[in-house]
Write a protein that binds this DNA or RNA. Structure first.
Length: 419
RNA sequence: CGGGGAAUAGUGUAGUGGUCGCACGAGUCGUUCGGGACGAUUUAGCCCGGGUUCGAGUCCCGGUUCCCCGACCA
């Protein structure tokens, strides 16, 4: 991508209304744009990151047997009446259609997936089953906040699983929990993300939240100092001692909930009469589990965890571009060299943003590059060209290296393979 | 939803009731070219609706929107 063509603008000044770090950086670097409170556009840069996150999640969901599909956001009122949630879920967006008919914009998809499953699940032979989709959710949050960390419309991955018995549900649930941990590692927040034993949900007494420790968080979690078990506030109030090791000392941390998984049991199979014939010929209710990750919130959390005073530091796995190729000066040799490197990297499927602009000073290019957070910065200038070299610097390191142009691809490959 | 702030150019800001000014950005021209460079020039603004007044960005009333705290929260 040529930087002069990229649809973005860097803004030097922080907006006076923005407080959270991720919001500030993502807006200033041109990743997202606010349409209204709690509703954001992902600009090309932000969308590239979002797609990378999406692909990591998709791959992991497929690894636990999830089949991807797509359910609609527009829902009939009747399904929400059936589960009793039309009147009890106060974040539910309700709207009127033709003939004064009532609709809901789905904040979650039990009301769609359960009745759909009823059409295809008849026998124990049809179980277990898990399906997921990655799609826009609508939640009429009383208060949207912290940029993309808490919005009214957001992209969510929700996986739903169907089981013949409790043991199967529980073993699958654990599998997904492990997969979640893996996802958070892959996107670069593994070290600060904890599977957190939680209660207070409305589906089952207990659930597991995946909480990433950061000051931007709106939740409080407690880490047992002895065994590092994480629990949420409700659990802490019920159990003064650690439920795992009996420890009594906890560290209190602010955290963002990046994922949540539930064993729903028959909560949704019952209202939709989702049953199957078991081996012994008896009819039983299907047991369900659900597993969600908010992609935008995850993206924002990645920035909260990975940044410095100059800007974002994207983990390589989700970065919009792997390489930021910066051309300094525009004499023929520098330009030809930079263009050649750009073409060669493209040929090798390296995602590269090429700053070929001639009207920007070096300092401005560096500052923008740091703000934007691309993992590898490659500089081509008169100085480097004279030595048949480029300067290469990793965003998260302070020192730069001079390397021969002929070795560039190899060095990039090495860095790339460190994923 | 309760409470608290705020709204002037794309962004950040200044403005006793008396012609809305500055900086950054953006455009053009030129000089620059390794950490937000320089000169010239251009561009663009008082949230909306009422009211008071000779005169309102400023005062009053109503509305809208945004931000923050809390409550809420698959």
């Amino acid at each position: 991508m040529l930087q002069s063509k990229l649809f973005y603008k860097i803004n030097k000044d922080k907006s006076s209304e923005i407080e959270s770090v991720s919001h500030d950086l993502l807006v200033r670097a041109g990743f997202v744009d606010q349409l209204m409170a709690g509703v954001y556009t992902f600009l090309p840069l932000g969308f590239l990151v979002l797609k990378n996150i999406e692909n990591i999640i998709r791959k992991n969901m497929e690894e636990v047997g999830g089949q991807e599909m797509l359910m609609p956001a527009l829902n009939p009122k009747e399904n929400w009446i059936k589960t009793g949630r039309w009147d009890t879920v106060d974040i539910l967006f309700k709207l009127k259609g033709v003939g004064d008919k009532d609709y809901a914009l789905a904040p979650t998809h039990e009301e769609v997936v359960a009745p759909t499953a009823k059409k295809f699940i008849f026998s124990y032979r049809d179980l277990p089953l898990s399906v997921f989709h990655i799609q826009n959710k609508f939640r009429n949050e009383l208060r949207a906040k912290s940029g993309i960390l808490r919005t009214r419309e957001f992209v969510m991955k929700d996986l739903y699983s169907f089981h013949a018995n409790q043991e199967d549900l529980e073993s699958y649930y654990e599998k997904v929990a492990d997969t979640y941990i893996n996802i958070f590692k892959e996107v670069g927040i593994g070290e600060s993300t904890y599977r957190t034993f939680a209660s207070g949900g409305s589906f089952s007494k207990y659930s597991d939240e995946f909480q990433t420790i950061t000051n931007a968080g709106e939740d409080i979690i407690y880490l047992c100092e002895k065994c590092k078990l994480a629990i949420n506030k409700e659990i802490k109030e019920e159990n003064p001692k650690c439920t795992k090791c009996g420890g009594i000392d906890f560290v209190e941390k602010k955290a963002v909930e990046v994922g949540n998984i539930f064993k729903m049991g028959t909560r949704y199979s019952e209202p939709f009469d989702l049953k199957f014939k078991d081996k012994d010929g008896t009819e039983k209710l299907v047991l369900m589990g659900c597993y969600g990750i908010g992609l935008g919130r995850l993206l924002g959390t990645i920035v909260e965890v990975n940044h410095d005073e100059k800007g974002i530091i994207w983990p390589k796995s989700v970065a919009p571009f792997l390489v930021h190729l910066i051309q300094l000066g525009s004499n023929d040799k520098v330009q030809a060299t930079a263009q050649k490197i750009y073409q060669d990297l493209n040929k090798n499927n390296i995602k590269v943003l090429y700053d070929e602009r001639e009207d920007k000073s070096a300092g401005e290019k560096f500052a923008e590059s740091d703000l934007m957070g691309t993992p590898l910065r490659v500089i081509v200038s008169e100085k480097t060209v004279a030595k048949n070299s480029v300067e290469l610097k990793e965003r998260n390191k302070s020192e730069a290296k001079i390397i021969k142009i002929k070795d560039l691809q190899k060095v990039i490959n090495n860095v790339y393979n460190l994923l």
